[in-house]
Each structure stands twice: as structure tokens, then as C-alpha cells.
Computed example of a mutant assay.
Amino acid sequence: MTRRVAFVIFPQFQLLDAAGPISAFDIAGRIARGGYELEVLAAQAGAVASSAGVSLAAERLGDGPYDTIVVAGGAGTRDLPALAEVVTWLKAAAPRARRVASVCSGAYILAEAGLLDGRRATTHWSRSDDFARRYPRVRLEPDRIFTRDGEVWASAGITAGIDLSLALIEDDLGGEVAKQTAQQLVVHQRRPGGQSQFSALLDMGGPNGRFADLMEWIRERLAEPLHVERLADRAAMSPRHFARAFAAETGVTPAKAVERLRLEAARVRVEAGHEPIDRVALAAGFGDPERMRRAFLRAFGQPPQALRRAARA
């Protein structure tokens, strides 16, 4: 069975948003011997310039039907009125496709077409606040690598499009083909959709921020009580002043920062081996497995056991 896949681009699209998924599906199609037929589509046929100045040749938006439609993102999504023809086409084409997906800010185009109303979705972290204001009916999950809600998929910025593509390929052709595709792409491991877009430390001020030394001190003592008074004492500040200064610098409260560092450390241990979950919870400072499970669900959308199974697979 050959599946027809359409990749939709537009002027000022992000090159890797299209090229990454195209390469993944091309490789998978060769591994599966004719698994996919690929088409690049745009409002006007011909060369379409990406934001990098490099162009891709595209055919005019066609009648299909298509098995899968993948919509790229990029700087061009900042001028949505200019993409009205693409949005109109998508409204008509999407109901006849088996599934629809977006890469990066391509989620704006899906949202404009009404395809994300009431659904979970994600987009590039830098556009999340704007996206949430524009499309309040979308259940935005800004810290996800990719999301799936029914047969509508969305992914975060740029390289996450490859993670999304590998998940789509696995859904079609099985884990072995997806694994071989990842090997050909020299991708070490497909990241699960629930994985955070960020490193906890980088997300909270980086290695050279005002509280960088404190962050490292916390990381070395995750199993210990880390209440705000103890952290303030370490920073040589009053608890009230410390809490205000820390939030201003990092964008999160001290308690949330500790939880993020614990989550990051716990996830590494959960995915890395066979250590009992309750032992991981103690080592990371959660105290008990149920508390850690709730934190994992909030942060990653999956419990620790599901992440461990995905990593083993």
C-alpha cells in the first residue's frame, strides 16, 4: 500500500520544517519499498523561497485526496492573510485526508482552518503566548515535542518535525521501519511527544545566570529538603527578598524550579535503566512514587512507567 503524503509550504517557510519530514518519509518509503508517494504543494506552482533564501519546487495545491498532509511553519506564518488560499484549501482537503500534521508555527495555519478547535496542540515555544491569545479554543500544550489528538498532530519547532515524522511512520509501518529510518537519519532516538522542549537549567536562566551556582547546589542535593528558607539562606538573602528576586530572574518560583530539576533528574533515571520507580522517587526528592507520578503527568503528560516503556522500545 502506497500512502500519498502532501507537504505544504509557502513563501518564507522554514526550510527544515519541510526538508526534515520529507527526508524521513523518503527514507521510510524506500525501506518499506514504495510505502509513500511524496508531493510538495504551494498556492502557486514553481520555486518557493524559504526564509533562508533556498527554494523548493512545488506543485499547485491539488485535489488529492491525500493520506497525510504536513504543513510547514516559518516566518511566513506571521502574515496569515497572505496564506488565505492555503487555509481555504486546507479546510476542504483536511476532511478527506486520514490525518493532518503541522511542524512548528504551521500550527497557526491549522488553527486558522479550524482544525485545532477543542484539540490538544503545540507549537514553537517562542510563539506559544501569541498562539494562546489568538486561538483560545485550542488546548495548547507549549512544553511538548509533539502532540496527537485523534488524527490531528502538531509538533514544536524545526527538528521536532523529525520526531513527529518518525512517530507518523511508526504509526503507519511499525517500529522497525521507524527505527531503521532514525538510524539512516543518524537520529539517536526518537523523542517521545511528551518530552519537554527545554533543559530545566537553560530554561531558568542558563549556566551564567545570577542563581546558576545555587541551581548546581540544588542539583547535588535533590534528595534533601529544599524549602525556600534553606535556599534563601544559601543565597544569603531573606526568604521574601530571595523569592521575589529568584522569580524575577528565572520566571518561576523557587518551589517550581526545584520540581523542574527533580523532574529532569528523575526522567533520566527512569529512562536509563531498571531502577525501581520508588527508588527513583526517593533519589530525586519526590519522597514517594505517587507524588512523582503526578508531577510527571503535569510536566510530560505521561507517568514514569510509560516513559520507561517508550525508552526501552
Rank of each mutant, 00 (worst) to 15 (best):
P11R: 01
F286P: 05
L297T: 12
G273R: 06
P81Q: 10
L115F: 07
F25R: 01
A132Q: 15
D163A: 08
Q14T: 14
V258H: 02
A311I: 08
R210F: 00
L173W: 01
L83Q: 00
P21H: 01
D143T: 14
A178C: 00
V54D: 12
K179I: 12
E176R: 13
L201T: 09
M237S: 13
A42L: 08
T122M: 00
S55I: 08
A42D: 03
S55L: 06
E220C: 03
F13M: 00
F25D: 05
G150M: 06
S51P: 06
G76V: 01
A43V: 01
D213A: 15
A235D: 00
Q305P: 07
A212Q: 04
L185T: 10
V70G: 06
A178I: 01
G194F: 04
G205K: 04
A245Y: 01
D79M: 10
D130S: 12
G76S: 00
S128R: 04
L185R: 08
R294L: 13
Q305V: 13
C104M: 08
K179N: 12
D171I: 03
G53D: 06
P192G: 12
F146A: 09
D288V: 14
G64S: 02
A49G: 04
W153P: 00
G118Y: 02
V86L: 13
L261Q: 06
Q44R: 12
R298Q: 13
Q44P: 06
P207Q: 14
R294E: 14
A92Y: 08
G106Q: 05
L231V: 09
R262M: 03
G73M: 09
L140D: 02
R4K: 06
L80C: 11
P304F: 05
A72D: 00
Q189D: 15
S238P: 11
N208M: 15
M237I: 10
R148K: 11
T77N: 07
A243P: 08
A156K: 00
V280Q: 01
S238R: 15
A57T: 14
L164N: 04
R219T: 11
A107F: 03
G251K: 04
R219V: 11
I31D: 06
F242S: 07
M204K: 02
G35C: 10
V87T: 10
R120T: 14
S105T: 12
D203I: 13
S55T: 09
R269C: 10
F300D: 03
V54K: 12
A310S: 14
R221V: 11
P276K: 07
L140W: 02
E112M: 02
L202T: 13
A236S: 14
L214N: 09
S50R: 03
L297A: 12
T181D: 03
S155R: 08
A121K: 01
A247L: 14
V86Y: 09
Q184H: 15
V186R: 15
L15K: 07
Q12G: 11
V228H: 08
A167H: 07
K256P: 10
L80S: 12
A6W: 01
I109H: 06
R234L: 11
S55G: 09
I158R: 08
A113M: 08
E39V: 11
E59A: 15
R3C: 02
D17W: 02
G150F: 02
A58G: 04
P192D: 12
L164P: 02
A284C: 07
A6S: 00
E216R: 15
Q14R: 13
P225Q: 07
G251C: 06
H227F: 13
V270D: 00
E264Y: 02
V187F: 14
G205I: 09
G175D: 13
Q14W: 10
